[in-house]
């Protein structure tokens, strides 16, 4: 991969965030380049989800630099961020329970996109997504509320992909689903990566992260403690023991 010319897809620096009066994130800095799958790792409560939400603009109070494809998004509303091509998949899935699978996908639909260089972005149709998630294809008319946790997890990812995002923020895809689904998730992410998708995922499951990602950031108490390639992290027992509890 060339390490020049193109600016990072997502560039975060000095990101601070608060829940009410509680200061959660301290000067978080990270980068995602086109085509990369990055894992944001750390224990429960380390600030992984908060980082993703803060990037998305879903927190009442945050400050810092957030640039997406060269544009400053730190003061934008979540819907504006989403429309610029930054997709967000929440950890608690947040499926619309009254809507069918097809209707859930419809809520995420956005325009077709092109990269600034003119090449088409990864654009999705419901049929293409049903191919990626065959389970969903078999239950198009089912209501979101009547699906299992794993099926909902797939639906929430598919729904975000309907927005044809340049970059997906994927919050804890392996949490709270059956092992067989975790395996499917990993395959799905690898298949997206093979098609050129860029993903920033938060993850506690080290093996899952190791399987899918190129680089990793490790968070502890709202601060980035480590940043490097996934391979280096796998060999670094200290970091793993101290911050990941592996």
């Amino acid at each position: 991969m060339s390490d020049v010319v193109e600016p990072a897809l997502l560039e975060v620096s000095g990101l601070n965030a608060w829940y009410g009066a509680a200061h959660i994130l301290f000067d978080v800095a990270l980068q995602v380049r086109r085509g990369e799958v990055i894992s944001l790792m750390g224990r429960n409560g380390a600030g992984k989800s908060t980082t993703l939400k803060a990037i998305m603009g879903l927190l009442a109070r945050r400050d810092g630099q957030i640039r997406f494809m060269g544009r400053d998004i730190a003061a934008k509303e979540p819907f504006q961020v989403a429309r610029m091509g930054l997709g967000f998949v929440p950890e608690d899935r947040r499926i619309f329970p009254d809507l069918t699978v097809t209707e859930n996908l419809e809520t995420g639909r956005q325009q077709l996109r092109h990269w600034p260089d003119g090449s088409p972005a990864l654009n999705w149709t419901p049929d293409a997504l049903y191919e990626l998630f065959p389970n969903l294809g078999r239950m198009q008319g089912r209501r979101g509320g009547q699906m299992s946790g794993g099926e909902q997890q797939m639906l929430t990812i598919a729904r975000t992909l309907m927005g044809n995002p340049f970059l997906v923020l994927l919050d804890e895809p392996s949490e709270g689903v059956a092992p067989v689904i975790v395996e499917q998730m990993a395959h799905m992410i690898l298949s997206l990566k093979a098609r050129g998708a860029s993903i920033l995922l938060s993850e506690q499951n080290f093996h899952f992260a190791q399987l899918v990602s190129d680089r990793a950031y490790v968070l502890e108490k709202g601060q980035i403690m480590y940043e490097g390639s996934m391979r280096e992290l796998a060999e670094n027992d200290d970091i793993q023991r101290n911050y990941l509890g592996v």
């Binding site: 879903l58 819907f79 929440p90 619309f96 859930n104 419809e106 809520t107 975000t160 927005g163």
Partner: peptide, 24 residues
Amino acid sequence: TRWGVMVRAATHDREMLGALGVNQ
């Protein structure tokens, strides 16, 4: 209608709908 689907979705979770790019 698409608008109706959005309305029903908003009834449940407007914040999520916003994160999907819908101007509430």
